[in-house]
Design a protein around this nucleic acid. Structure first.
Lengths: 261, 261
DNA sequence: GAATGACGTTCGAAATATCGAAACGCCAGG
DNA sequence: CCTGGCGTTTCGATATTTCGAACGTCATTC
């Protein structure tokens, strides 16, 4: 009974092993062999062999008491290698820091992965009233593109066909009071981003959270990253904040861009 | 010709696939198939199959121009799942922040992985004169235990046999002006850590960098983590700094400890 | 306290997914 | 026009993986 090989030329064992690693999340930090086997539709013995392999390499470790497995420190190294490989991050670091020092606000450096934004650097603002999301967002966090300032900056300059294909795969879920849930409205705003070179997020990701972002463009013109400042709620009009912070943000983005290849 | 199976019961494909991921480092962020094949002593075709698998899962991505491969964003997710799985980090976060707010110094939360310390959270101190290492140390960084304050705090309360076995595998390399390169001197200092409940690093990891650390002990008594503050060089005597900052540090460590299970 | 069930783990025979040599198409340099 | 290196594809042989079954251990149940 020749089971149709789902993908030819790919390594099944490697796929399965990595699926095991991915099964561990902050919500489910410890898993047993049987749990894993059920979840991935494998036999326990097969699962055990993969887990044993991962454990012997330090990617998993076993809890002595419960006999369940947790992610090991080696996985951290992998992730950290990824971050370190992004030369962009080193270049941008000092500029981000200066941005936060002068504005007082938390600033971020972000790249896009398909429909998500990933934070790759983050400088916290002055101690004081932190927003809820300020705590839950870390370097490495993913947020949707469509309802974040950095996301819009990263989308706005995509070639139209690419953008369309991307947006078709995004559910415009209402995440906060003012999330744009209409595709036309989002497109209009992206047009605005192209005109002004700035993107805003006015309570679209989380209530009481505003943000302004600027794209970082490589020599080729492609937008490779974006920076933003997160602004805790204030009675000020968004347009005032934009005219106050926008130029600084763009200047910083451009300084970073000139050092990007 | 029965080649002696190096490890029975382990998955060769998974091992090799992960070895490929690990071959990418910040120093060598982009690698080609042939490069990888040489490095891991595999054939190009085998290497290609693993790389194709990793790429199809988003763990690697191929550069359009050079056809070489880089680590993909999925790897980041893995790494940060590990961080997120450490409940300790969430508990300690606000306390670390408060520690930095009151002292003005950069503070860190660290755990031990064998002979290394791994930074798992970090709150930067006030803008100003940053030390060189302040820039190169990130969350996820590894530093040796024997020449760091957090490292000593993490070693000091180990059962003696475990400690001995660990120290036997550590080269006490002189990394900075005052690194302890003598095992007896190090043991004496660990004794001091046990007495005072504080560990210090006085230009042992890098010149002009000092640090004070306190262990975080679980209910079981085991030291599960350590916190520290990094102190830029000043003419003050180390003992004065310890008596000035030590109590705050210990109070913070104890507050964190009471919420750890 | 025996019986039950779930768990992690080990073993072996069966077979399948994996391996590596060889060849392909491409490009750059000689 | 050849040469050498690259990434990629193919294909038959086989080494690697697979899955069922069984073991020892632990809680829980009766």
């Amino acid at each position: 009974m020749p089971k149709p090989t789902s993908d030819s030329g790919l390594s099944q064992s490697l796929e399965r092993g990595l699926a095991i690693l991915c099964a561990f999340t902050p919500d489910r930090p410890a898993l047993g062999i049987s749990e894993l086997a059920r979840e991935l539709a494998l036999t326990r013995s097969t699962t055990h062999r993969y887990v044993a392999t991962l454990a012997s390499l330090g990617f998993l470790e076993q809890d002595d008491a419960t006999r369940r497995y947790r992610l090991g420190p080696r996985v951290l190294d992998l992730g950290f290698s990824t971050l370190g490989s992004l030369g962009l991050r080193e270049i941008a670091g000092p500029h981000l820091r200066r941005l936060t020092d002068t504005t007082g606000h938390t600033s971020n450096l972000a790249i896009r992965d398909d429909t998500d934004v990933i934070l790759i650097d983050r400088v916290r603002g002055r101690p004081g009233r932190y927003h809820h999301l300020e705590f839950t967002l870390h370097v490495g966090s993913r947020i949707p593109t469509y309802c974040s300032a950095t996301g819009k900056a990263l989308l706005a300059f995509l070639p139209r066909p690419d953008l369309d294909r991307l947006l078709d795969r995004i559910d415009l879920i209402q995440r906060a009071p003012r999330t744009l849930t209409d595709k036309q409205a989002l497109l209009a705003e992206l047009q605005q981003v192209r005109r002004t070179g700035l993107a805003v997020n006015d309570e679209e990701l989380e209530s009481a959270l505003r943000s302004i972002a600027a794209p970082i463009r490589a020599r080729s013109g492609e937008v490779v990253a974006a920076i933003n400042v997160a602004i805790p709620w204030s009675p000020a009009a968004m347009s005032d904040l934009v005219s106050q912070l926008g130029p600084t943000l763009q200047a910083t983005a451009n300084q970073i861009a000139t050092r990007v290849i």
